[in-house]
Amino acid sequence: MITGMQGLDRITQLFIRRLLPGLLCCLLGSGVRAEPVLMVLSDFGPSYNQVHDAVLKTAQQPPTVTTLDQLTPADSHRDIILAVGSRACEQMLNRYNPDTRLICSFLPSTTFEQLKQQLLPEQAQPQVSAIYIDQPLLRQIRLARLVKPDAKTLGSALGSNSRSLRSDLESGSRDAGLKLQLAYLSPQDNPVEKLTPVIQSSDLFLVIPDSSVFNRAISKWLLYLSLRHQVPVIGFSENYTNAGAAASVHSSPSQIGQQAGEWLNRLQAGETLPPPSHPAYFDVSINPVAARTLKLQLSSGEALEQALLHIEAGH
């Protein structure tokens, strides 16, 4: 016969063995939370604010937000850091901690690669990735082919910041069945003298985002020459389209922020850091006046965007 004390002992032992661990997990789970992601903004300009807002809208666990002038030494040791813009990326690479997973976003691919080579030359496999602001060259080339399906020759120009893209430009043109006409520009060159023969011998001209080549003045000359010689220009921003490019493919700050927020969700769900990537989301804009002048049959930017998505999906 079990006495009252023996029964109480058995109940106590049962509580310790079966119930107490689960209760402790619940208590600890409610009191201990994962360290929040740190989002570092280059500044609070309109574009950065759009990235910021899209990240907060998309991320399941909103990150802590700071700017470069508010950084503390402890910030470099966060588990996950999202740097928005070139300046923020440079600062976080300068302070890089090998245990941190760092995502640089909203910056050109060439800038990211240069910063990484300069600031992490000894790191064999740093946990660093990026979401670029520029489009993959193949996407731009495919848009060029859609704009003028009967084109045979694609012209373009590279500067000091974009020379590393030559092989990708050559292979992308070849895959699209286009012969590449390429010019190299330096600050000392006369851009009109360099660009004119390329435009004259091309059916299309692709603008590569490179500030060492295409500043505002050179871009105006390029667009003038293209209209004069009836060669459509494919740009990389809506501003280029508005200025006279036949069409451009580009990603907005909000689209970059959405992708960054999705990456944060993946990391916090236990997935590995994705490799450096071009934008997953994009828009296509067209200039109807330029299209009519160049005798192009373009329906709409949305139709071209859907055609690109269809091609990229492999259909």
Rank of each mutant, 00 (worst) to 15 (best):
D150I: 13
A151M: 01
L223C: 05
H229Q: 14
H278W: 12
L264M: 05
R166N: 12
L178I: 10
V207N: 01
I199G: 05
F214A: 07
Q188A: 14
H250T: 08
S173W: 02
A245V: 08
D283I: 04
K179R: 09
Q258I: 11
D168F: 11
S254R: 07
V231N: 09
K152D: 11
D203R: 08
A260H: 02
I199V: 15
Q255S: 10
S226K: 01
I286P: 07
K148R: 15
V147I: 15
A247W: 03
P276E: 01
G257D: 01
P232H: 03
A269I: 10
V147L: 10
R174V: 12
Y184I: 00
S201P: 02
S237H: 03
I199S: 06
I199R: 04
G155H: 02
Q259V: 09
K148C: 12
E262S: 11
P197E: 06
N265K: 05
V231K: 01
E170C: 09
P209Q: 01
D283H: 08
H229L: 12
H250V: 05
R228K: 15
T153S: 13
T241N: 07
E238V: 08
F205V: 01
D189V: 05
T196A: 14
D150R: 11
S237Y: 08
N215R: 03
V231I: 13
P209Y: 00
S251Y: 09
I218S: 05
P253N: 00
S251D: 06
S251H: 00
A217D: 11
G257Y: 04
I286N: 06
S226G: 14
L180T: 06
K220Y: 14
P187T: 00
S248R: 03
A183Y: 03
L146A: 14
N215S: 05
Q258P: 01
A151K: 04
P276A: 10
D189C: 00
R166V: 11
N239I: 13
G155E: 05
F236Q: 00
E238D: 13
L223I: 15
D168C: 04
S251G: 09
S156V: 08
S285D: 09
D283G: 00
L178G: 01
P232C: 07
D210Q: 01
S171G: 09
D175I: 14
Q255W: 04
L185K: 03
S219T: 15
I256M: 06
S251W: 02
P279E: 12
L165Y: 12
T196E: 15
A243E: 13
L264C: 08
T272R: 08
R216K: 14
S171D: 13
L225H: 06
L180F: 07
S167W: 13
D283A: 09
R228M: 13
T272Q: 14
S171A: 14
S171L: 13
I218E: 03
V192F: 04
K220N: 14
N190D: 15
S171T: 15
S156I: 05
L227N: 15
P232Q: 05
E193Q: 15
Q255T: 07
S186G: 07
